[in-house]
Each structure stands twice: as C-alpha cells, then as structure tokens.
Amino acid sequence: MEFGINSPVLFVLAGIIVAVVLAQSVFFLVKAWKRAKQLGMDSAKLKRIARTAAIFTIAPAIAIVISVITLSKDLGLPLPWLRLSVVGNLSYETIAATNAENAMGLSFGQVTGLTATQYVTIASVMTISILVGIWLVPLIGKKLLTGVINLEKRDKKWADIFQNSMFIGMISAFVGFVFCDVADVFKGDFTGLIPVCVFVVSALVMAVCGLLLKKTGKRWIMDYALPISLILGMAAAIPITAWLS
C-alpha cells in the first residue's frame, strides 16, 4: 500500500482509538450519573452541571481544532486528530514533532511529503513521550486519593484548606503567566498588556455575574457565568489587540 500522511487507513486507525476514548467518557458519565442518583442528588441539578460543562467546553474545543489544523500541515490530519483527542495539547505535540523531525534533518512547518518511516518515527516519539500520565494514574491514583481521604478524617479543617490551596496554587501560576510580558512596556512594547486587559475584562464580567446572581437570585446566571465570561473575555481580545499592537 502506498503511504500518504492522509491515507484512509490512518483515519480508520485514529478513528478506532478516538471511538474507544469516547466510549470511556460515556462509560464514566453513566456510572457517575447513576451514583449521583443513588446519593439522592437532584436530576435537574445534574443536567444543569452537564449543560454548563458542555457550553463552557465549546470555545476551548474550537481552539483545539485550530491546533489540529496547525499540525496537519506537516503531519496530515489523522495523527494530529488522534494526538489532540487523546492526551495531547498543542505545545507538547509541536515540541515532540519538532524534536523528532529535527533528529531526522527535517524542519517543523516546512515538511512536504513525509515518508512512512519518518511518519512512524514521529508518531512513536509523540506517543511514547506522553504516556506516563496514562499509566501512572492507575499505579498511584488510588494511593494519592486515599491519602486525601485520610487527611480529611484526621483534620477536616486542614483538609479543606489543603484542597483550596491546591486550586489557588494552580490558579496563581496561570495569573503569573498572564503578567509575564508586562515588563516589555518599559521598552515601548505594549502587547504584554493584552493578556492582562483580557484577564481583567473576564474577571469583571464574572464579578458582575456574581452581583447579578446575588441581586436577582436567578440560578441560570451562575450556570452560564463562566462560559459568558470566557467568551466576552476572548471577544474583548480582538479590539484590545488592535489597540495595543
């Protein structure tokens, strides 16, 4: 069979794996939903949570589609489709593909017509380098979570602070990232302020949603506050970028 980076057989292979991952998500969804009902959780509440998760996911998922398009120029469609549906993200996949291509004397973004050998090499490097999380969770996940439960039994107040501290630690790192280029202002480059302005717009929208929720008591505001803030923040990036670039 003649090789091509968009060969139909590659679509079939990627499609089978994506279908398995989709089945895993459906399996856990059904299992968790049934358990939620056993715990006496309200169906309407569960549906609201599922709806919010679905709506909130749309914009980031479109960003992932853009990543697929970006990577497809070098690697064809099936491999980026698979890699970004399972485990991957754009920065990792780009670095892994670039390293594998460089090792074979190729340059990322300028590759035309990979051979089957080159394709298999790149796919192998991209796959093996990212697998740790998939097997490590089965190995240590239960122990880690048992540790959290034991902590809760020993000292409930500290367990709450522990959980909140983890969330805050993660959020702090991303807040730091938002400000990473602000010092460029002193060199006359104002583009570093773009993420800061977007961050502020999104935070303000969220705060307004919170105030509206308190004033009106309408629960749908809470359900849609995060997706609305995300979309308005992203939309604000368009004029802000034009202004500061």
Binding site: I168, F174, V200, S202, L230, G233, M234, A235
Partner: peptide
C-alpha cells in the same frame, strides 16, 4: 479571530481566578 483564541487562557483564568481568589484571599 486569531487574537480571541490567542487569549483564551487569560480569559479563562480571569473568570475562574476572581471566584477562587475572592473566596480564599488569605491563602492567595
């Protein structure tokens, strides 16, 4: 549309950050 998708992470953490930081000011 490029600037909108380029700024997805700041937009996401602006909204998420304000909620969690406001609730955990001392920790944050």
């Amino acid at each position: 549309l490029a600037p909108a998708f380029a700024q997805m992470v700041p937009a996401l953490f602006g909204a998420l950050g304000v909620v969690f930081i406001a609730k955990n000011v001392k920790i944050a």
